[in-house]
Simulated assay, not measured.
Amino acid sequence: MIQVVEAPDTVRNKVSFSAFGFLNGEVSLKGKLIALDEKWIQVIFEAPELKVGGLEFQYGGESEVKLQITYVDEKVRLGKGSRGSLFVFQRR
Score class of each variant (00 low, 15 high):
R92I: 14
G25S: 09
I44A: 11
E62C: 08
E64H: 13
W40A: 02
L78Q: 09
F17C: 12
F17L: 12
G31M: 01
Q42Y: 05
L67Y: 05
G25K: 05
T10F: 03
P48L: 04
V11C: 01
I41H: 06
L67P: 00
V65K: 06
I44H: 08
G25R: 04
E49S: 05
E62W: 08
R91I: 08
L50N: 03
I34P: 01
E26P: 01
V4F: 03
Q68E: 15
G61W: 12
K51D: 03
R12P: 00
E56R: 14
V27L: 14
S63W: 07
P48I: 03
G60C: 08
I44D: 15
A7S: 13
I2T: 15
G81F: 09
N13D: 11
F87T: 05
L50F: 08
A7R: 09
V5I: 09
Y71D: 06
V5R: 01
L29S: 03
G53F: 12
A47P: 03
V11H: 01
T70H: 09
V65D: 07
S28D: 02
G53V: 05
I44Q: 11
Q68W: 09
F87S: 04
G21F: 06
T70N: 06
Q58V: 04
E46N: 13
E38D: 15
Q68S: 08
Q90Y: 13
L23H: 08
K51N: 13
A19M: 13
Y71I: 06
T10N: 04
L67H: 04
Q58G: 05
L33A: 06
K30N: 03
M1C: 11
E49Y: 01
L67K: 04
R83K: 14
K51I: 14
S63R: 09
A47H: 01
E49D: 04
W40I: 02
Q58S: 13
W40V: 01
F57I: 03
V88P: 01
